[in-house]
Computed example of a mutant assay.
Amino acid sequence: MRRDLAVLIMKGSPEPGPWRRLIARSASWFYMATALALWAVGRAAAMMSGGGRWAEAAALTQTAIVIIPILAVGIGSWLDCRAARQAMTDGAPPLSLATGAALRAAAVGILWAAGFFVLARLWAGLLVGMSTTQFTAFSRQAAGVAIFAFAGWVALVFLRVFFDACAPKRRASGPADEDDGPGDSVPSRLATVLPVLRGVVLGAVLGLTILIVLSRLGVDIGPLLAGFGILGLAISFGSQALVRDIVSGVFFMLEDAFRVGEYVDTGRLKGTVEKISLRSMQLRHQSGQIHTIPFGQIQQLTNASRDWATIKFNVRLDHSADIEQARKTIKKVGLALLEDPEFGPHFIAQLKMQGVADITDSAVVIRLKFTAKPAQASMLQREALKMR
């Protein structure tokens, strides 16, 4: 029974966090302790004057703590099934996924809030001696705080699901095949900036919600804002390198200098961009090492994965070879590669001979070139050398 309850709670989220795990482990003990306490209240009510109200409150509480979780799980599961069915029928755009998650959070949250209000109304008069008028005034004040907190929570759920749905799926990190170029699945500019934007937006919404809730509770947030401003100014003066890194990163992103999945060279380090944060980026070297480079330390950057790449390479021929016949043969190889269904789509300009690059004692060196998509340039060069 306890395991079934824990599994039911864990299934409420595809990626349960530490709080949900804690609730799943302690839910069964909470129900046992609550049932025991309510039983004791019911037994004691029989020996008290006016104990009927206590017995009624205990009975209604026992019913509520059983029915409310069942309704919450049922409504959440129904909305999840509805969203999954719609995704299978019409696809699942990010906005639709985020809206469905926000509606689910709102529906379940409203149900829990209503249950909490009913229980508070039952026990406020018994435990605190609060009259109906006092409870009404208190509930109005508490509702103002709860509405803003609830709206902020629903907004966070919506934004988190929306950003997660828009973000590109991370590829498994591990040694890659030589033929699998980094540009095969380079995400768009928006998808590259999205993880940084996600953190900034979620942090801003969370901070704004906390400030509004504190203001509704009667806390003067003016000194808090002034204090945060002074703290930010002190940090900016004391951590100029951090500020430089963040500002440089903003300009790199605005200029679209690189994206996740592209191969770049910073002068000292090179590799495939694996992760971008607010102040640094991580490069994965071909041999597997990860280099973390603050944006402020990047003086120049070369992107080897953007648009196209022209490859020039040499081939050695005997002195007796016919140069004109070699030119025709290379042209035929280039046409054959263009017509190949596997290699042809990667070419932008076909393979051709530029001319004689050098004449040595042992060979005539001719230069060949072609233009292709950067991700497949090395593979196309190897195929061209195989067919010569």
Rank of each mutant, 00 (worst) to 15 (best):
A87M: 10
K352H: 15
M48E: 14
P223N: 06
I230F: 04
E262Y: 03
D307C: 12
D4P: 00
W39M: 14
F148R: 09
W123L: 13
K328M: 08
L8M: 13
T266E: 05
I67Q: 08
I323P: 08
Q289H: 08
I65R: 04
M353T: 05
P341C: 08
Q300G: 09
Q325N: 10
S49P: 11
V118C: 10
A372S: 15
V157Y: 00
A6E: 14
I68E: 04
V264W: 02
A165W: 05
R121H: 10
A142G: 06
F162A: 12
E274I: 02
L208Q: 07
K369F: 11
D318W: 02
P69L: 14
G152P: 05
F313H: 11
R284M: 04
P168I: 07
G334F: 09
Y263Q: 10
F163V: 13
D361K: 14
Q286D: 12
V260G: 00
V201A: 04
L156H: 04
T360E: 09
V41F: 13
I147C: 06
L38M: 15
A155Q: 01
P14Q: 07
G50R: 12
Q325I: 01
V108F: 03
V365Q: 11
F30T: 06
A44K: 14
E262W: 01
S248Y: 00
E255R: 15
L122I: 05
L338Y: 08
A40E: 15
T371I: 12
T302P: 01
D265C: 01
L385W: 02
A35D: 00
W54G: 10
I147Y: 00
I311K: 08
L301K: 04
D307F: 09
D322S: 15
A44T: 12
G249M: 03
A384P: 12
S96P: 00
V161W: 01
E339V: 07
A64R: 01
D164N: 13
F370I: 10
V157G: 02
A113S: 13
L95K: 05
F347M: 12
G227P: 05
T302Q: 13
V41M: 14
L71V: 15
L231H: 03
I276L: 08
S26W: 05
S277I: 02
I67K: 06
T63P: 01
V118F: 09
L122R: 08
L38F: 07
G42K: 10
L351K: 08
Y31A: 14
L208F: 04
W39D: 11
P294I: 05
H346E: 13
A336W: 01
A149V: 03
V186F: 00
S236V: 09
R316N: 12
I9Y: 02
R327N: 13
S378Q: 14
T133R: 06
V250D: 02
F251S: 10
I246N: 04
G125I: 03
M10G: 07
G125A: 05
K373Q: 11
S362T: 15
E339F: 03
T61G: 09
A142F: 05
V118I: 15
A384V: 12
W153T: 11
A357H: 12
A137M: 09
Q299Y: 02
Q134K: 04
C166M: 13
V260D: 00
W78H: 06
P168Y: 00
L159D: 00
P182W: 04
S49D: 13
F370D: 06
Y31S: 06
I359M: 11
T136L: 10
M48S: 13
T99E: 03
T99R: 11
Q289T: 09
S378D: 15
A6M: 12
L380K: 08
